[in-house]
Amino acid sequence: MMLEEYWTYILIVVAGFIATDFWRWLGVLAGNRLNEESEALNWVRAVATALVMAVTAKLIVFPTGVLADSPLWLRLAAAGIGFCVFLLTGKKVAVGVIAPIAILVAGLFLLER
């Protein structure tokens, strides 16, 4: 029992902490060599942004949990129309969050009936 508990913590440290922070440390070492105005930073920014947006889009297209049961078109419509509303109303982040959520919730309610 003791050993088993101990093992979970080893797993958390090795396969959790080291497995993620290794990349963060490399990021510090790489980023520390970059000048704020440098050409390389432009590339790193582009890569980081594309990565985050790929993760984000996957959350919408391939969700886990309850949203997995909702239709894809509804999630895409909520995100897409919501983003257009956001762009047309002066790019307020609150609008960008509330508009798609409202569309999604309305859609979920209508579909439930």
Binding site: I10, L11, G27, V28, R45, A48
Partner: peptide, 24 residues
């Protein structure tokens, strides 16, 4: 533990450019 490490570290590679773009 090796398989867990690989799965997690693969998902964490994205941390590197994210951190590198913030540090400067």
């Amino acid at each position: 533990i090796v398989a867990s490490f690989l799965a997690v570290t693969l998902s964490a590679i994205r941390m590197m450019p994210m951190v590198a773009s913030i540090v400067p």
